[in-house]
Each structure stands twice: as C-alpha cells, then as structure tokens.
C-alpha cells in the first residue's frame, strides 16, 4: 500500500490526472450548460466521438491540427443544432433523440472512416496531426508544480480556462441570465418575450461545441488517432460529474477532477496486482459511488431539516 501512496502523490500522477480529466471536463461543462437551460444533452458521448473522427480526418487532409480542431468543434455544434431541432421543433423526447445520435455516431463513425480511408475501426492510414503541447514559462521551472501543470496539451489549458469562461457566461452576461431563467421557469422567460427556443438552441449548440473540443482532444491530444468507440463512456460520466458538481462551475471542475483521478488511477494501477478488469471498472464505479454520496447527502439534508423542525 505504501507504493500506492507514493503513486498518488507523485508528480507523474498529478500530471496524468489533468491529462485524463480534460475530455471529461469539456463534456461536463457542455452537459452543465444544457442542463442549466433545462434541456439535458446526453448525446455528449456520440458528439465527442464524431468530433474525434472529424478532427483526425480534417487534420489529416489539410495537414493542419488547427483546421482539425475547428472542424471538430463545428461538427459538435452541428450535432447540438440537430438535437435542438428534433427536441425543440419536432418535440422528440430529448433523451431518445440523444440516444439516436449516440447510436448513429457509434456506427456512423466506423462507416465514415471506412468510406473515407478504407480503414476498419482505427484510423491508421490517415496522417492526422497532433495539437501542440505548451510549456508554461515560469511554472515549468518550479519543481513539483511544473511537473504537474506544465507541458500539457493546449486543450488541457483551454478546458481549465473554459471553467472560468462558463462561469462568466452564466453569471455575468445577459445570455447567462436568460439561460438560467429559461431552465428554472421557461414560462417566465417566455412571458417577457425571451425566445425560450432560441436560448435552448444556443445552449445545446454550445454544449455541442464543448463536446467538439473534448472529441478533438481525444484523437489529437490524448492519443494520435481515431478508434472505434474511443470515448468509452466519458460523455456519460460527464452527466454524473454535472450532478455531483451540483451544476456550479467550481463544483463541476472538482467532480471532473475526481473522475479524472479515478481514470488516471486505473491506468497506473495496472502495475499492481489487482485484476485488470476491476481497474477498468474503476472510473464507472467511482461515478456510481459519487452519485450515491451526492444523493445520500441531498436526502439527508432534507431529512435533517425536517428533524430540526419537529416540534
């Protein structure tokens, strides 16, 4: 167990937590915006997957990682738009519409990859580009801190910055006020002439954009290729992280880090004598345990309240 302790408190581990947190954090921020507007987006999984493939294909085709990133974000926004159209215009149940997107993405990416490159499942014949890593000037020199925080993929920094941006968006801008109003009482927003549909469209498109960033990171940062179902449930974990973070930007960051840590641990633990299946299970197990703790706390809060009030 001593070595496990060493593992968790090593700089490498700290570094890898940030590395694996990045896609979860993007997806969680996206989920949070959609939920704030009262339209839960559970198609983050499929959207990330589609964006991951798009990034690989476009960066391979143009030779530019930036073009790949832009294309990935655009395709994410497009899928957000499609979800919004079905849910808001055609009144499809938003969960079922999102399931449809996830199903389409899972098979559709394989289909598209094959049609485009002839590759089956893994984009080995596409010469895709990687997004650059960034060395942060001063921090890089500081011992432990530099090892953890410097030399990450550019999108890791973007994801951390996004937490602040999302906070500003939601709490310091007119659009944020509208998003919160629409999510809490859409009739109220509607009654003052705010187009609920428009605000929800914008929110779903933004959540798609975040999924796009997450997807681009997966295939052009985390690894350097696309592979079948490579998002492996991260889009779903995001929903749990949103709930655990209680829909607040800081809470969401901490919850994402927790799941990231579980994920990182599962990679590191493979060195120890724990059955690999359990290690693989860890992030999902942590998610469920996190959900339970959150729910217990919620229901205890209500109960305690009642007990105190008892006469």
């Amino acid at each position: 167990m001593g070595s496990l302790f060493d593992l968790i408190f090593s700089t490498t581990f700290g570094y890898s937590v940030l590395r694996v947190t990045t896609p979860i954090l993007f997806a969680t921020l996206g989920a949070m915006i959609s939920i704030k507007a009262g339209v839960v987006n559970i198609s983050m999984e499929g959207t990330m997957l589609t964006a991951a493939l798009t990034g690989v294909v476009i960066s391979g085709y143009t030779g530019s990682a930036l073009a790949g990133l832009i294309a990935a974000v655009l395709i994410g926004m497009l899928l957000g738009l499609v979800l919004a159209y079905f849910a808001l215009n055609l009144k499809t149940n938003i969960i079922l519409a999102a399931i449809a997107i996830n199903l389409m993405a899972s098979g559709g990416t394989i289909f598209a990859l094959f049609v485009i490159s002839g590759d089956r499942g893994i984009s080995s014949s596409i010469n895709s580009q990687m997004l650059p890593r960034i060395i942060i000037p001063i921090i890089d020199r500081i011992p432990v801190l530099g090892g953890i925080f410097s030399n990450h993929n550019v999108l890791t920094y973007v994801s951390l910055l996004s937490v602040v941006l999302v906070y500003i968006l939601l709490y310091k801008t007119p659009l944020g006020l509208r998003i919160r109003a629409v999510g809490e009482n859409s009739h109220a927003a509607e009654s003052v002439g705010i187009s609920v549909r428009k605000v929800q469209y914008i929110s779903l498109i933004m959540s798609g954009a975040f999924a796009g960033f997450g997807g681009a990171y997966m295939s052009m940062g985390y690894v350097s290729r696309f592979s079948t179902d490579m998002t492996a449930g991260r889009g779903f974990i995001a929903l749990a992280a949103e709930a655990l973070g209680m829909g607040r930007p800081l809470g969401v960051l901490l919850a994402s880090l927790l799941f990231g840590a579980a994920d990182a641990l599962s990679t590191s633990l493979q060195r120890f004598r724990i059955p690999s299946e359990f290690v693989q299970m860890l992030p999902y197990l942590v998610t469920i345990i996190g959900l339970i703790i959150y729910a217990v706390r919620q229901s205890n809060a209500t109960k305690r309240h009642k007990m105190e009030d008892r006469v």
Partner: peptide, 21 residues
Amino acid sequence: HQHFMLVPSLTVAENLVMGIE
C-alpha cells in the same frame, strides 16, 4: 398572468430586466 411568471431564485431587478438587460 394568474400564475406568476417569475424566476424564484433571481432577484426582483433580475426578473424585471430579463429580456431587456
């Protein structure tokens, strides 16, 4: 409206300017 069209967690001012912020 008979049932108030207000967002409970927001302040009076926020409710008032909603849409014309």
